[in-house]
């Protein structure tokens, strides 16, 4: 089992979720985060002063999947989130030692999805 964490552009979230649904990947957790990588930070104007900087608003997507769903999940995220511009985001994949469904107590492969 893997935990896939993707940091993407907020305005791409809706597209990514639809793409995941198409691939039958329904379990997901979404949160607002801020961050930046190569993209230097958004420019905003306050009372005539341009302010560049700080971190950018991003969305963090966490998806727990069984091994055979890792590639489809990555593909779905790539398909929807990629614009080719700096700031499209990143995908991180980590091992999941265990997964438990709270309602039933099921564990492992059964509990995912």
């Amino acid at each position: 089992m893997k935990l896939i964490t993707a940091i993407i552009q907020p305005h791409k979230l809706e597209d990514v979720l639809q793409e995941l649904d198409k691939n039958e990947i329904h379990l997901r957790t979404v949160s607002d985060v801020i961050g930046c990588g190569r993209q230097k930070g958004r420019t905003e104007v306050y009372r005539g002063r341009k302010e560049t900087g700080g971190c950018l608003k991003k969305v963090r997507l966490e998806i727990a999947v069984n091994e055979d769903f890792v590639q489809p999940t990555i593909k779905a995220i790539m398909a929807a989130a990629k614009t080719g511009n700096i700031g499209d985001g990143k995908i991180f994949i980590t091992d999941l030692v265990e997964c438990i469904r709270i309602r039933t107590g099921e564990k492992g492969q059964e509990a995912i999805g």
Partner: peptide
């Protein structure tokens, strides 16, 4: 952001 380069809420 696109028309006014402002945002109402920060995180």
């Amino acid at each position: 952001i696109t028309q006014h380069e402002e945002s109402a809420y920060t995180l």
